[in-house]
Design a protein around this nucleic acid. Structure first.
Length: 663
RNA sequence: GCCUGGGUAGCUCAGUGGUAGAGCAGCGCACUCGUAAUGCGCAGGCCGCGGGUUCGAGUCCCGCCCCAGGCUCCA
C-alpha cells in the first residue's frame, strides 16, 4: 500500500495526500475557508461523508454548505436531529422517513398512544434540537446486513418495513428511495449521545455533516398529517416541516421570502383591493367577483376574445348541464365521477349533471352536421364555466375552486394538420401569456397515466410524439412528467415563472384521439372517404379565476395600467379646485380611461395615501398652479416623487400610450 | 376525505366560567390643505351553526359548517 495517494480536483489540478486521508483532510489542505464550508464530498461521482478515506486516483470535489447539494446535506442532517429530539421528548415514538425537500426538510412520526403534535410543541422540539447541536454529536456511518438492520430497528415498524422492502423486489416509494440505497447492504448513521445521553440511529444513505455542531441555522415551520408512504389507506403520521440553511442570513432571507409570498397572496390582495370574495353562504370554492375584480376580469376576457377572433377561432356557447349519457359517452362518468357534482334526478328518469368539462358539448357542435375536410381545422372557442367537486381539503383561493371558467377551445383537424396546428397553438399561447407580462416559461410533457387511461399504446405513442415535436419547435426547456397525462391523451403544459421566481402551471395543450372515436366523429376527405378527425384541447389561461390569481401574485396587486380597474385618480387640492378637477376627469374619461375624482373633503395626504394603497397607476393632484396653466401634478405608481406642471393633454396622451402598449 | 390550527364589529385582532373590547374602515359635524393617516362625535355584535354541562358559556364538552397549512387528489 502506497504511503501517499493522489487525487484530482474539479479544476483539473492534483493533490497528494497521506494514504488514508479523507475528503475533510483534502478540504483542509486546500484552505481553511473551504474546510469550514465543507459538508460532504463527491468522490468519483458519488456523494460521500467528509470522513470517508479517499481512494488513490480519485476524482474529488468538496460540497460546500452554500451549494444546493450542500444545503441538501444540511437539511437531511437537520432532519436526523429533529428525529432525535422528538424521540427524546416522546419516548416510544416511531419514526418513518425524513428527507430533505426544496428549501427544507420534514420528518414523519407516529407518537405513542396516537398522540399528535401541536403547533406549541415546535418550540420545545426546537429547543431540544439546539441542545443536540450544542453537544456536537458526530454522525457515524455504519454498514449492516438486512438481518442486522431488522435487529437494530426491532421496535421501529416503519424502518423495518423499509428494510423488508429493500430485501424484496417491492418498489420503494420515491421518498423512501431517496433515503435508502438499493442493495443488500444497509447503511445507518449513528449520533452517539454525549455524557450518558441516549443518542440516535437512523437508516440512511447519507451523506451527512461530520457532526451536529455543523448545523444550527434552522427553524421548524409547521406540523401536518401525512399518510405513510403517501397512501391514504395507510396510517396517517405526524409530519414536522422545517427549513435549514448554511447561515443565519440565508435563513433570514428565506423567511423574508415567505413573508413576501404572503404579502402577494391573491386572497389577501383580493380582499384589500375589493376584487372578489368567497361568501360562505354560496359554498366552498365558489367565488364572486366584485365590481373592481369584475372590471379586471372583463378586460382579461375581452382581450383574449379579440386575440382568438384574430387567430381564426369561432365562438360558441353551451349550457351548464347535460344528461348523464353525454358524460358516459365521453368517459367522464367512468373515470371522473367522484370529481363531478352528484346527479340531478329528473322525473323522466334521466340523471342530469352539471358539466365538469366543455369538450363533449363542442364535440356535439362538430357532429351537428356532416363535415368536410375543407372546414378543418375547425377551432371552437368558449369561456365555458365548469363545476368540479373538489375535495374539501384542496380548495384554495382562486387557484383551486369548485366553479370556474375555462378559456376553452377544441380544435378538430386532420392527422396531417395536427403537427402544424399544435405548433401554431403553441406560438399563440406564449404570445398571449407575454402580453399579460409573463415572460419566462418551461414546458412539461405529460405522458400516459399508469392505470387511468383509455386507448392503445400505439395511439398514445403517436400523440406523445406529436406533442413532443411541437414542444421542440417552441425552443423551450421541456421536462417529462411520466404518467401525468389526462385519461384521454397526453398533454403539454406551460409553466410560467412569476416575479418572485415561482412557477405556475398555466396553459395546457392536450391531444385526444379517444373522444373523436367515442363520439364517432368524421369528416369527408378530398378522396370522398370518411376519416376521423384529431382533436386538440387547449386552454391558455387554464381557468380565468386561476390566471387572475397568478397575475395578482405576479404583480403583487399592481397590475399593469391596461388591466387596472381605476387607472387615474384626480385629487383637487381644495374645494375651489373641483371645477377644474372635473374637467380633468372628463378629459380622461373622454379618452376612454377609467378615472375617478376624490373630492377635497379630506386632507390631500390622506387621499393620496388611500389611492397609493389601492395601487392606482396615476394619482393626479390639481391645485392653483394647474388651474392657471391647464396642467396636472402626476404621481406615477412606483415613482419616487411627483411630476408637477404636466400639460393636461400631454398627460392623457402618455397614459393612453402606456395603456395601449400593455405596460 | 384525513391531520394540525383557527372562526369574536366590514377588516386585523385582544378577551380561559361572572356586564363583549381596541385599532383601522363606515357614518355625521367641523377643518380647505400641493404629495402616504386632520380633529371631535356616532354607530356597529345570534362571539360560525346546533346541542349539552353549569346558578351563569365567547370561554368547558359533543356534532356540524367554513377558513388556513399539509397529506391524498386534480379528467
Amino acid at each position: 500500500m502506497p504511503a501517499q495517494i493522489t487525487v484530482r480536483l474539479p479544476d483539473g489540478s492534483r493533490r497528494t495526500l497521506p494514504a488514508g486521508a479523507t475528503a475533510g483532510d483534502l478540504a483542509g489542505a486546500v484552505g481553511r475557508r473551504l474546510a469550514q464550508a465543507a459538508v460532504a464530498a463527491v468522490v468519483d461521482g458519488a456523494e460521500v461523508d467528509l470522513g470517508r478515506p479517499l481512494p488513490d486516483g480519485a476524482e474529488v470535489s468538496v460540497v460546500t454548505a452554500d451549494s444546493e447539494a450542500g444545503r441538501t446535506v444540511l437539511r437531511h442532517s437537520t432532519a436526523h436531529v429533529l428525529a432525535q429530539a422528538v424521540l427524546r421528548l416522546w419516548p416510544g415514538a416511531s419514526y418513518a422517513i425524513g428527507p430533505a425537500i426544496e428549501d427544507g426538510f420534514y420528518y414523519d412520526f407516529a407518537l405513542p398512544g396516537g398522540t399528535t403534535f401541536s403547533q406549541e410543541d415546535l418550540a420545545r422540539i426546537e429547543e431540544e434540537m439546539r441542545r443536540i447541536v450544542a453537544s456536537d454529536q458526530s454522525f457515524v456511518r455504519q454498514e449492516h446486513s438486512l438481518e442486522e438492520g431488522l435487529e437494530i430497528f426491532a421496535d421501529q415498524p416503519f424502518k423495518r418495513e423499509i428494510i423488508e422492502g429493500v430485501g424484496s423486489d417491492a418498489a420503494l416509494g420515491a421518498e423512501a428511495a431517496g433515503d435508502m440505497a438499493p442493495g443488500t447492504v444497509l447503511s445507518v448513521y449513528r449520533n452517539p449521545g454525549a455524557g450518558g445521553e441516549s443518542g440516535f440511529v437512523d437508516l440512511c444513505r447519507g451523506p451527512h455533516v461530520p457532526s451536529t455542531g455543523r448545523l444550527g441555522h434552522f427553524k421548524l415551520l409547521r406540523v401536518a398529517g401525512a399518510y405513510w408512504r403517501g397512501d391514504e389507506k395507510r396510517p396517517q403520521l405526524q409530519r414536522i416541516y422545517g427549513t435549514a440553511w448554511e447561515s443565519d442570513k440565508a435563513l433570514a432571507d428565506y423567511l423574508h421570502r415567505l413573508e413576501e409570498a404572503e404579502r402577494r397572496d391573491h386572497r389577501r390582495l383580493g380582499a384589500e383591493l375589493d376584487l372578489f370574495s368567497f361568501p360562505t353562504e354560496i359554498g366552498s370554492g365558489l367565488p364572486v367577483f366584485h365590481p373592481k375584480g369584475g372590471t379586471v376580469r372583463r378586460l382579461m376576457e375581452d382581450y383574449a376574445r379579440r386575440r382568438h377572433a384574430e387567430s381564426g377561432y369561432e365562438f360558441v356557447y353551451t349550457p351548464h348541464i347535460a344528461k348523464g349519457e353525454l358524460f358516459a359517452t365521453s368517459g367522464h362518468l367512468d373515470w371522473f365521477a367522484e370529481g363531478m357534482f352528484p346527479a340531478m334526478e329528473l322525473d323522466e328518469g334521466h340523471p342530469y349533471y352539471v358539466k365538469p368539462m366543455n369538450c363533449p358539448y363542442h364535440i356535439l357542435i362538430y357532429r351537428s352536421r356532416q363535415r368536410s375536410y375543407r372546414e378543418l381545422p375547425l377551432r371552437l372557442f368558449e369561456f365555458g364555466s365548469v363545476y368540479r367537486y373538489e375535495k374539501s381539503g384542496v380548495v384554495h383561493g382562486l387557484t383551486r375552486v369548485r366553479g370556474m371558467t375555462q378559456d376553452d377551445s377544441h380544435i378538430f383537424c386532420t392527422a396531417d394538420q395536427m403537427e402544424q396546428e399544435l405548433q401554431s397553438v403553441a406560438r399563440f399561447v406564449l404570445d398571449l401569456l407575454r402580453d399579460f407580462g409573463l415572460e419566462d416559461f418551461y414546458l412539461e410533457l405529460s405522458t400516459k397515466p399508469r392505470d387511468k387511461a383509455v386507448g392503445t399504446d400505439q395511439e398514445w405513442e403517436r400523440a406523445t410524439e406529436a406533442l413532443s415535436s411541437a414542444a421542440e419547435h417552441m425552443g423551450l426547456k421541456t421536462v417529462l412528467d411520466q404518467g401525468g397525462g389526462a385519461f384521454y391523451g397526453p398533454k403539454i403544459s406551460v409553466q410560467a415563472r412569476d416575479a418572485i421566481g415561482r412557477y405556475w402551471q398555466v396553459s395546457t395543450i392536450q391531444l385526444d384521439f379517444q373522444e373523436p372515436q367515442r363520439f364517432g366523429l368524421e369528416y369527408v376527405g378530398a378522396d370522398n372517404a370518411r376519416h376521423r378527425p384529431v382533436m386538440i384541447h387547449r386552454a391558455l389561461f387554464g381557468s380565468v379565476e386561476r390566471f387572475f390569481a397568478i397575475l395578482l401574485e405576479h404583480y403583487a396587486g399592481a397590475l399593469p395600467a391596461w388591466l387596472m380597474p381605476v387607472q387615474v385618480a384626480v385629487l383637487p387640492v381644495r374645494h375651489d379646485h373641483h371645477d377644474y378637477g372635473y374637467k380633468v376627469l372628463d378629459a380622461c374619461a373622454g379618452a376612454g380611461l377609467r378615472v375617478e375624482l376624490d373630492r377635497a373633503d379630506e386632507p390631500l395626504g390622506a387621499r393620496i395615501r388611500r389611492r397609493k394603497l389601492d395601487k392606482v397607476p396615476f394619482v393626479v393632484v390639481v391645485g392653483d398652479d394647474d388651474v392657471a396653466a391647464a396642467t396636472v401634478g402626476v404621481n406615477r405608481r412606483g415613482a419616487e416623487r411627483p411630476e408637477r406642471g404636466v400639460p393636461l393633454q400631454g398627460f392623457v396622451d402618455s397614459v393612453l400610450a402606456e395603456v395601449s402598449a400593455h405596460r
